[in-house]
Design a protein around this nucleic acid. Structure first.
Lengths: 361, 361
DNA sequence: GTTGAAAATGTATTCGATTACATCCGCATG
DNA sequence: CATGCGGATGTAATCGAATACATTTTCAAC
């Protein structure tokens, strides 16, 4: 009659008492509640799901019992039956990256407004991890996914994939995304530096595997072009978004004798690293070299000097991503779309006029 | 025969085509695989769960079909039957706080080594959120919880709660925790400052609702006592762990004329704020005032000057927490325990000798 | 007092996988 | 040739809740 469950392994030679009962966590069921309330399971279920169709008296009785006994319906059983979980998974490559925090807040806000819960999965840009979380959708443990990485895990389901790409995007037109106009934003940064008199502007790119990084580089080139400046390959470096990468990039540029009075970095952390490298070489920011970042993470306000950067509308990116995902979940027929927001230049202390008298480093 | 499911809402007046089929995501089942492989569902299940008990030939045939059709077993059904999900939820008050990143890495490492997946829940120290995630355990959507906050959500199950407290702890002896010896660590910080000649040491406390903050304050007092210094209430302030709180605290101390040559802050972010406030008042760190933080978040290495701080073994905290949770899940009888690790003083640039000639500010 | 519709509740099926128990087959042994 | 055992597979019960469909109750209208 009773089903054998893989109960807690009892170690045989336990000191305190030979016959420790396999202590299972006690769980209540509708059946139990129904018996106590002297109604059928259907009535209990209805009392909880759609109270209005149950008589006042019965409802109160059932609710009282549920509360007294601390009954929580088994979500697995429910979800199995209803085929939805009201759970979505947000994938982020790196929780240590403060950029994502605000985006996640936005996701969570919209999720809660719509009765969804958010679970975060850190992937460390690791395909295996991504896939494991994506499989949760195929395995029906979650309804959809928002990924903040430029790779779309394969979800083995036919039909519309319940996935939205946030902050990044992929070429595939069938994947909905929200992100900022990176080309325009990067060009704005260069425009601004040019307006301060800079002409020797170095660039620290991010990983070229990411389309948004390619866009930022394109924006940089565009900005130079608009100002009639010829791009100097000796003023370009690449990094992996880390502070250390920013330091290395600047060290590299200085080592190969690149002469520049400003550096534009593809994200704030590299910009922070760049400032450190410059300062440790005895250069002053912004007197000798101006530095501009991208993202506007929280710490950028607190560096010395505070970092001039392109501020992404992080909360809006998150909100919009979740809104789009909910749309897809409600109606798989809605056409996919790429929604492009804009980033805004925030001027702080790390940028200043190019001083004529200061020869490029 | 067929069960009515709350399918995707079809908006009535849709432009493109009146009879859009309610596009459900296509899902395969064991039954389907079994039919194609011409075996019973039991055999399919066995081929996937315990391949060794199925004949070579059958196994290969089934695996081939599973692969070809992209079949993923429905985890809800499986978990319902087996009563375990191999999922654990890690609750953190604030993803923006970089301290937790490393702890989570540790949790994830041990989790993966043991076949568990980790889902993160951000609670913003909000009881309702905490409760919602905790209910996932009662609803059998997750096997256990690790919380990094000093509050234990109630999980309506009898018997041992599958919960572990990491980085923080609560008085309740039945809750297992891992955290550092905050008293000793804080005292160490004071010892160190004393060894540099400081005697007027200010303290910026964290929220007193958190036991670990109380401990850090106690350690501060202990350190002073050991050095024979009388605690000066005018040199104590409180903050909420944010950078801004650190700034305010120092402004407050300075405003009320507190004379000190060193500040010890209950976490790094407040220490960063403290440095900012000092510097913006024209004081030099560490020449005029030494600053010590707590946690050793990643950015502490990159502030100017780099922050001297008490480094928590973040990875170990996470690993240990997950190890303890797995123990509990495997055997609810294991006695609860509080595991105390130790924090280590990391000396960087924000501390220096107390200069005799510099009168306390 | 009927009648009938609406409200309330009950019965039994279903979601998809796992697994206890039953069955069947092949083959070595006596 | 019967016996028995282990390996391979099948049948059907089960997890816990939701709900289609069936039944009963209630009550207003005639």
């Amino acid at each position: 009659m009773s089903v054998e469950r893989p109960g807690p392994k009892k170690k045989s030679g336990k000191g305190r008492g030979a016959h420790v009962a396999p202590q299972t966590v006690r769980v209540r069921t509708v059946k139990e509640i129904a018996a106590i309330a002297k109604v059928s399971v259907a009535t209990v279920s209805r009392a909880l799901q759609r109270p209005e169709i149950v008589s006042e008296e019965t409802r109160q009785r059932i609710h009282e019992i549920v509360k007294r006994l601390g009954y929580t319906p088994n979500a697995l059983a429910r979800n199995l039956r209803t085929a939805r979980t009201r759970l979505i998974v947000a994938l982020l490559p790196d929780i240590a990256n403060p950029f994502f925090s605000e985006v996640i807040r936005g996701i969570e806000q919209v999720a809660y407004e719509n009765g969804y819960s958010v679970l975060l999965g850190e992937t460390q840009s690791n395909l295996v991890r991504e896939q494991a979380y994506a499989d949760m959708v195929a395995a029906r443990q979650a309804d959809g996914i928002i990924t903040m990485f430029h790779r779309i895990p394969t979800i083995p389901v036919d039909g519309r994939l319940p996935i939205v790409n946030a902050c990044e995007y992929v070429k595939d037109r069938s994947i909905s995304s929200v992100y900022v106009d990176n080309v325009a934003a990067a060009a704005t940064a260069v425009d601004y530096l040019v307006s301060l008199g800079h002409r020797d502007i170095a660039f620290v790119a991010g990983p070229s595997s990411s389309p948004i990084c390619v866009d930022r580089e394109e924006g940089y080139q565009l900005g130079l072009k608009r100002a009639g400046i010829r791009a100097n390959p000796a003023l370009a470096a690449v990094g992996d978004f880390s502070i250390e990468a920013g330091e290395r990039a600047v060290d590299h540029l200085l080592a190969q004798g690149g002469a520049f009075t400003a550096v534009f970095c593809s994200n704030d952390e590299m910009a922070i690293g760049a400032m450190r490298a410059l300062i440790s070489r005895g250069l002053r920011v912004p007197e000798d070299v101006s530095v501009v970042g991208f993202d506007d993470i929280r710490f950028s306000r607190y560096t010395t000097p505070a970092l001039t950067t392109l501020s992404q509308p992080k909360n809006a990116l998150g909100r919009e991503a979740m809104t789009m995902l909910i749309e897809i979940l409600n109606d798989p027929e809605v056409p996919p779309r790429k929604r492009v927001l804009s980033a805004e230049l925030v001027v702080r202390g790390s940028t200043g006029p190019c001083r004529r008298d200061s020869r490029p480093v």
